[in-house]
Structure formats: structure tokens, C-alpha cells
């Protein structure tokens, strides 16, 4: 499989701090993969994102994006291959209307007007914001603004999209909207995604999960594998998804569940099949 992002032994220290914000980070992201990075507040997730996109220079170690080594000369090249969506919906909306905002990045790349208009429409359609093309940001909800931010990123046709807690400032419905859009992008357009979050609920959707703690990657694996660590995750300051906590507690009460469920749907369906099986045996 094609490696899109390769991080090798990267460490980073902020200028006026004496501890390392990142220590010996190594990982790879493959084409079409959805990788989630989780960690408690201050574990270094945003620092890592900033390093990837060349906003901060790594103290040691190397980063390759699509085979290009990241350094001062290649930073603009690398940025063309990465799109990033930040946390605050308001502070990344540059244009006066939705279309202007998506156009901003295209203008920067010197793309001609016809092509621009095509890409703006495509990108807005992909995030289901095509009906809002003339809206000003103050007439949009947080979730809608984040969808525009995603459109602005994908209009530039990056190889990877990084979401740095893109849903953490949204209300539950806004969160759902944005995650929905991301899932359709992944399903229909095979986008490679690095999603950074401290919400373990978002982890369940990933192909692979990296858990960060105090500037190091401490665990790596599929969501199910990661969740099997249970209380260890809680010790690292992460909240387990409600369905998982409930599954574990039900098991302690000797309810014969087959697995720890990562999402509500799975848990609910197993519970009612169990219930109907039980009531059947009682009536017989």
C-alpha cells in the first residue's frame, strides 16, 4: 500500500519550555486510510498537526508527505498535499461569503476562474452546502461553517485531510453533520483522513487509532483493540464511549453480552435479541 504520510522519530520542544511536547513519534498513514489520533488535553496532538503542515519545525526526526521530505524549501509543496480543518469555526473563515471562502485557497494557487467555479461547486456539493453558496458566515451554524472549512480544504484536492478537533466546538447535531460529511467523503471519494480528537466516540469510525499520552504514542491499533485496554484509557484521561461503559457494566451484572459494543446501535440490537430470546425461554 502507498504511504502518504511518514513520520520518523520526530521530537519537538517549544522554545521557552523545558519538556518535550513530542517525543520520538513515528507512524505512517496509508492511502485511503482513516487514522484517528486521540489523547488527553495537552498530550501534543495539535503540536503534531502543526508539525505535519510545516507551521512548526521539528526539533529532530523527519516527516515525508507523498514522498516529499518536509523542510523549509518544500513546505509550500507539502501544504498543497495536505488540507487541515481547525477547531474554531469562526477563525478559519476568510471569505465574506461561502463561495469566497472556498475560492480563497484556489486564488492562492493561481487557478483560473472557470476551474475555480467548477471546483467550488463540486466541493460544496460534497459537503452538502451547495444551497448556501451566497451566505455570509454569520448566517451559518457552527457545523455549517466547519463543513465549509472542509469544502475549502478539499477544493484544493489534497492527498490527506487533517481534522484537528474539528468537531469539539460544535453542539451534538453540528458534530453529527460534520462526521456524516466526513464519512461520505471517505466512502465515496476514498479520502485519506487524519482525525485528531479527545472524544473516544469518534474513534470507533477509524481504521486505525493512535493513542497519545504526554507527547508519546503509547498505543496503536484498531478501535476494538484500543478499547480492550478499557480502564487504562481512563487513566490517561480519556472518556470511554457510553455504549462501551454500559456493555462492561452489564457484563459485570452477568448479562451474557458477546462483546463490548463501540456504538449504541450494536448494543441495542444485541440487547433486544437477548431479551426476546430470554422471554421465549420463559414462556416455554
Amino acid at each position: 500500500m502507498e504511504v502518504v504520510v511518514r513520520v520518523e522519530d520526530v521530537s519537538f520542544q517549544y522554545a521557552n519550555e523545558n519538556i518535550y511536547a513530542l517525543q520520538n513519534i513515528s507512524f505512517q498513514v496509508y492511502k485511503g486510510e482513516w487514522v484517528t489520533i486521540v489523547g488527553h488535553n495537552g498530550s501534543g496532538k495539535s503540536t503534531l498537526a502543526k508539525l505535519l503542515i510545516g507551521l512548526l519545525p521539528s526539533t529532530s526526526g523527519t516527516i515525508h508527505v507523498c514522498g516529499i521530505p518536509l523542510n523549509e524549501e518544500t513546505v509550500w509543496d507539502v501544504r498543497k498535499r495536505l488540507g487541515i480543518v481547525f477547531q474554531n469555526p469562526d477563525n478559519q473563515f476568510v471569505g465574506t461569503t461561502v463561495q469566497d471562502d472556498v475560492a480563497f485557497g484556489l486564488e492562492n494557487q493561481g487557478i483560473q476562474k472557470d476551474e475555480m467555479s467548477k471546483r467550488i461547486n463540486e466541493a460544496l456539493k460534497k459537503v452538502k452546502m451547495e444551497d448556501f453558496i451566497h451566505h455570509e458566515p454569520h448566517r451559518l451554524s457552527g457545523g455549517q461553517k466547519q463543513r465549509v472549512a472542509i469544502a475549502s480544504a478539499i477544493a484544493l484536492q489534497p492527498n490527506v485531510i487533517i481534522l484537528d478537533e474539528a468537531t469539539s466546538m460544535l453542539d451534538p447535531s453540528g458534530k453529527k453533520e460534520v462526521l456524516h460529511v466526513m464519512e461520505s467523503l471517505r466512502r465515496e471519494h476514498h479520502m485519506t483522513v487524519i482525525s485528531i480528537t479527545h472524544d473516544l466516540n469518534e474513534v470507533a469510525k477509524a481504521d486505525r487509532v493512535l493513542v497519545m499520552n504526554k507527547g508519546r504514542i503509547v498505543l496503536e491499533g484498531t478501535p476494538a483493540h484500543i478499547f480492550s485496554y478499557g480502564s487504562k484509557l481512563e487513566q490517561m484521561g480519556l472518556d470511554l464511549p457510553f455504549s462501551l461503559q454500559l456493555s462492561q457494566q452489564l457484563k459485570q451484572k452477568h448479562i451474557p453480552l458477546t462483546m463490548d459494543h463501540l456504538n449504541m446501535e450494536g448494543l441495542v440490537s444485541e440487547l433486544w435479541t437477548l431479551y426476546s430470546a430470554m422471554s421465549n425461554t420463559v414462556t416455554k
Binding site: 503542515i53 507551521l55 509550500w76 501544504r79 498543497k80 495536505l82 487541515i84 481547525f86 474554531n88 477563525n91 478559519q92 476568510v94 463561495q99 469566497d100 475560492a103 480563497f104 485557497g105 484556489l106 486564488e107 492562492n108 494557487q109 493561481g110 487557478i111 483560473q112 476562474k113 475555480m116 475549502s152 480544504a153 484544493l156
Partner: peptide
């Protein structure tokens, strides 16, 4: 934050830019 968002979307001043409007 806005400056960072502009930079990662490739903003490097006016020289090579095209105009949408």
C-alpha cells in the same frame, strides 16, 4: 488563528493570485 488558516491554504501575498470576483 486566521493567519495560520490563511497560510495553510497557501496564502503568500498578492503576486501569483488569481481573483474569484
Amino acid at each position: 488563528e486566521l493567519a495560520v488558516a490563511m497560510e495553510v491554504r497557501g496564502y503568500r501575498g498578492g503576486n501569483y493570485r488569481t481573483k474569484w470576483r
